[in-house]
């Protein structure tokens, strides 16, 4: 059997195992984002949004929908990989992979594909929920698809690095709680950065999630605070850097080999 064939079957095996995992625990993985986002749509979109009026020329509900969808995608993709991989490390079941002829790249892609599947799946669920509250008119479907896929990839890779480096369960929640959540809330999900003083506008531009949210919003509504080409390029750079970092850690055996 060729090595390529082994890697392909191994990739599919990891991917299917990951999908089976998040489907088995759908009450923890798929349902909560749907409920949380419904609450956001009701409270911020309908109740408060009516008083806010328009943001960047669109009604507030339409403005926040793309940001909330993107928020669901990135948090689901990240947490899927970080928690699943760390749990496999914790139970030592990752050793099943380590004793097999699985290339580090196959292992990485398998877990990342699993994270992307959950991120994109949750994104679709939240989009369907949002259709109950507003009508979505897609400005550029290719930008929408590209940014969702890239965002899911970047955050799945980030989750993988987190899972590799984590030594206890607390380590898995540190990044989502102290980095991703604040950057998301300050990343233009609920407001346009044009509302901020000039200094804070410049500071906001350092936030990668702002670029993600605005690129996705551009794909949906055709409005953006930033240059989407810069954002897409940045996502590609993140994919490359995180892939290389993950491979370096895997080859070193960080968190895996004694």
């Amino acid at each position: 059997m060729s090595m390529l064939r082994i890697q392909w079957v191994a990739f599919n095996t990891i991917f299917q195992k990951e999908v089976r995992r998040f489907m088995r625990i759908w009450m923890q993985t798929l349902l909560p984002p749907a409920i949380t986002m419904t609450l956001y749509f009701v409270v911020f979109g309908q109740l408060i949004g009516k008083r806010v009026g328009e943001m960047d020329g669109v009604d507030y509900m339409s403005f926040i929908v793309p940001g909330l969808i993107m928020m669901s995608v990135i948090t689901s993709a990240y947490s899927n990989v970080s928690s699943s991989f760390f749990s496999n490390k914790f139970q030592h079941s990752v050793e099943e992979l380590m004793v097999a002829p699985v290339h580090p790249l196959t292992m990485l892609f398998g877990y990342v594909a699993g994270g992307m599947a959950r991120g994109i799946g949750v994104g679709i669920i939240v989009t369907l929920v949002s259709l109950y509250f507003t009508s979505l008119q897609i400005h550029n479907i290719w930008v929408v698809i590209l940014v969702v896929v890239l965002a899911a990839t970047v955050f799945s890779l980030g989750g993988f690095v987190n899972g590799l480096l984590a030594t206890k369960f607390d380590d898995v929640s540190i990044v989502p709680t102290f980095f991703i959540a604040p950057l998301t809330y300050l990343g233009g999900v609920f407001y346009s950065i044009s509302l901020l003083p000039e200094f804070w506008q410049k500071v906001s531009l350092l936030n990668p999630i702002l670029h993600l949210v605005n690129t996705f919003r551009y794909g949906v509504l055709g409005i953006s605070d930033i240059n989407i080409m810069v954002a897409l390029s940045m996502l590609v750079v993140f994919v490359v850097l995180l892939t290389l970092w993950s491979l370096w850690l895997l080859n070193k055996g960080t968190g895996l080999r004694k």
């Binding site: 064939r5 082994i6 195992k17 089976r20 995992r21 030592h92 079941s93 099943e96 097999a100």
Partner: peptide, 24 residues
């Protein structure tokens, strides 16, 4: 190995099939 190292929530049959998959 000496210590149990399979996923505690996976089914017996799935554990075997998954391991086979890692070997292509």
């Amino acid at each position: 190995p000496q210590e149990f190292n399979f996923n505690q929530f996976e089914k017996v049959y799935d554990i075997l099939i998954t391991q086979a998959g890692y070997f292509g």
